[in-house]
Nucleic acid binder design. Structure first.
Length: 651
RNA sequence: GCCGAGGUAGCUCAGGGGUAGAGCGCUUCCUUGGUAAGGAAGAGGUCGGGGGUUCAAUUCCCCUCCUUGGCUCCA
């Protein structure tokens, strides 16, 4: 007998060799039907795999992420089985669960061009195979036998994978007529898979390397219940409704023009107003936090970027230099503001007493992003960073860094971004050529970021190889409507640029010292930040930020004059909006304001004019009641303030 | 940049070898209305651009530009 400890602390005696499934059956039949895998001493196993020693066991179901991943990974095998049956001779790459849900399999289809037209028969085949309830059977295999198997199948990809595996550490899984090299774990049998949907096909480089052949990635999703697929598809539809590109169009925020150029957004009045509000908001916070505004030009001598190292790093795959017609001097569109700011620092001798110096600029930069990377406002070729550079003494770095974290958190909270992750982006010691500066500087800077983040109580994840070429970063990542993760806020410690620009200050010892730079941008870029803001709010911006805060809707032409006079009064109080004096019924005007997501509607007619009042209606909520103009102003001020997230007094 | 998909009216989309259609929007007129669409009439398109096949191309073929789902990249 063995002792099985369950998550609630209870202990069960089971026969040696009992599986997770046996344990579930011992508890209840219902649980047994839902168990997908078992976590045994922290490792996820097949639910059917015998447990031979005392163990801590967690039974995993669809409710657990690991349960879902096991389910989807098993579904990838089912997909591969169906594809192999339909298209004999295909070569298989890898087929894991995807991070954003569902799974994929990377396939070399040879001559066949796999497309969406193939989806229905693949889905049908998968369902057919699922109904057979074929068990996923685990089998240990020697490396030699495994190689032999895939040589016979002539699958170079699997052979390449095998190349990296040790003998004795190799397992195959077989379900029905399909066998795959796989570490597992898997669900008990294919019958658990009730709903199947192929999502799309895409190219994907083998092993994620650009110089390797490109395989066809078949993305799909499956569920243990048909209803969950329906639910999932509804969520996808909802995400499409929140897409910032669609809402940007509908709400007249921004547009693109082929004639202007791809990746170059044009801000329409309402979008520009939104940007302006956000900028004012941050400028105010930065003023309090001791930043000084600076302004620098959109181009700079190529030499400036040779000095900074940007030219060497990005020069060739960037917008090419602009030449002066007479002298042939070379200038670059600025891809970064930091070199300009370094020169401002350098323009005066600095004393240790002056530091830290904090220079802030909403600086518009231009980068030649790969055409395939352009995406709405989230990835563009011309964008504005809410950039600032802090020049400080080495002993001030951590404190300054922490103040920046406070500022970023203040911005995120004020705008209602609750779900973000803080990522420490580290350099990759195995790829030193990517970075400038010494290993010592890097390790020191990375340690300071870790400590500052820890002292601010941030829950961080570390990513190797995600650093900028001149220094490590603390990045604040937020998801868009489709669950893709984007970097917004960022803070970076930099020992390299001060050295390259020979920045100095005179210390208390009357000697020259080198300052440290902190690069930071709470929004990141206005364009990307706004795109995520649109998707997070679904276009229902908080009242303080909304381009149009109110619309005044006269019930008939007879009340237009009163409507305009109310508007003039409110305009004095910096309330933004318009009078809808079109020749339409009020129901129509309400509908149009609702569709345009105007937060507050003021309806005025006979009664309101007589009593010098307005009838207030909130977007999405309906009638609030009738109030005097003065009452409304108070009400509005309160609503507006409440819409500006929770604010800590520290910043 | 690479693989796949797409581009028809301001927007969303249908159509398909014989020089184009809907809904919404827009303009004008009627209507003067009380909390999510009042009625009528009208204007609006070299069917992304270039080339080819054909008596005839928006439709078929090739190239190109742009958009898009991924991959790679992201100072």
């Amino acid at each position: 007998m063995i002792k099985i400890t369950l998550p609630d602390g209870s202990v069960r005696e089971m026969a040696q060799g009992a599986s997770g499934l046996d344990i579930a059956k011992d508890i209840s039949e219902g649980l047994a039907r839902n168990v997908l895998a078992a976590k045994v001493n922290g490792e996820v196993w097949d639910a059917t795999r015998p447990i031979t020693t005392d163990a801590e066991v967690t039974l995993l179901t669809w409710k657990d992420q690991e349960g879902k991943n096991t389910f989807w990974h098993s579904s990838a095998h089912l997909l591969a089985e169906a594809l192999e049956a339909l298209y004999p001779g295909i070569k298989l790459g890898i087929g894991p669960a995807s991070e954003r849900g569902g799974f994929y399999y990377d396939i070399d289809f040879g001559e066949h061009k796999f497309s969406e037209d193939d989806f229905p028969k693949v889905e049908a085949k998968m369902k057919e195979l699922a109904k057979q309830k074929n068990a996923y059977e685990r089998q240990d295999i020697s490396k030699a036998d495994a190689i032999k198997y895939f040589q016979e199948k002539d699958d170079q990809y699997k052979l390449e994978l095998l190349d990296r595996l040790e003998d004795g550490d190799i397992t195959f899984y077989t379900q029905g007529g399909f066998t795959d090299l796989c570490r597992g774990p898997h669900i008990p049998n294919t019958g658990y898979i009730k709903a199947v949907k192929l999502l799309n096909v895409a190219g994907a480089y083998w092993l994620g390397q650009e110089d390797k052949p490109q395989l066809t990635r078949v993305n799909a999703i499956t569920f243990p219940k048909a209803g969950e697929l329906t639910e999932y598809l509804e969520q996808v539809e909802e995400a499409k409704r929140r897409d910032h590109r669609k809402l940007g169009q509908e709400l007249d925020l921004f547009t693109f023009s082929e004639r202007v150029g791809k990746g170059l957004p044009l801000w329409m009045p309402k979008g520009a107003l939104l940007r302006d509000r956000l900028e004012s908001f941050l400028k105010k916070a930065q003023m309090r936090a001791g930043y000084a505004p600076v302004v620098t030009p959109h181009i700079g001598s190529k030499e400036l970027y040779v000095t900074s190292g940007h030219y060497e790093k990005y020069g060739e795959d960037s917008f090419q230099p602009i030449n002066t017609p007479e002298e042939g001097e070379e200038y670059l569109l600025k891809p970064m503001n930091c070199p300009h700011h370094c020169e401002i620092y350098k323009a005066r001798p600095r004393s240790y007493r002056d530091l830290p110096v904090r220079y802030a600029e909403f600086g518009t930069v231009y980068r030649y992003e790969q055409s395939g990377e352009l995406h709405g406002l989230t990835r563009v070729r011309g964008f504005t960073q809410d950039d600032a550079h802090i020049f400080c003494r080495p002993d001030q770095v951590k404190d300054e860094f922490k103040k920046v974290i406070d500022l970023i958190l203040y911005v995120f909270r004020s705008l209602g971004f609750k779900e973000f992750s803080a990522q420490v982006s580290l350099h990759d010691p195995e790829n030193r050529a990517k970075y400038i500066g010494t290993e010592e500087q890097w390790l020191h800077a990375e340690q300071q970021i870790r400590e500052a983040a820890k002292e601010k109580g941030l829950d961080t994840v570390e990513e190797i190889g995600e650093a900028a070429f001149y220094g490590p970063k603390l990045d604040f990542m937020v998801k868009d409507a489709l669950g893709r993760s984007w970097q917004l806020g960022t803070v970076q410690v930099d020992y390299n640029l001060p050295q390259r620009f020979e920045l100095e200050y005179v210390g208390a010892d009357n000697e020259k010292h080198r300052p440290v730079m902190i690069h930071r941008a709470p929004f990141g870029s206005m364009e990307r930040f706004i795109s995520i803001l649109i998707e997070n709010t679904g276009g229902n911006f908080p009242l303080w930020l909304s381009p149009d805060q109110i619309s005044i809707l006269p019930i008939s032409e007879r009340f237009n004059e009163y409507a305009h006079s109310v508007y003039r009064t409110l305009e004095e109080e910096d309330i933004r909006g318009f009078v809808d004096d079109r020749d339409e019924k009020v129901g129509r005007k309400i509908r149009d304001s609702e569709v345009r997501k105007i937060p507050v509607m003021l309806i005025v007619g006979e009664k309101e004019v007589a009593e010098n009042k307005v009838s207030v209606r909130k977007h999405g909520e309906g009638d609030v009641g009738v109030m005097t103009i003065e009452e409304f102003q108070h009400w509005f001020a309160k609503e507006s303030k409440a819409s500006l997230g929770q604010v800590s007094a520290e910043v």
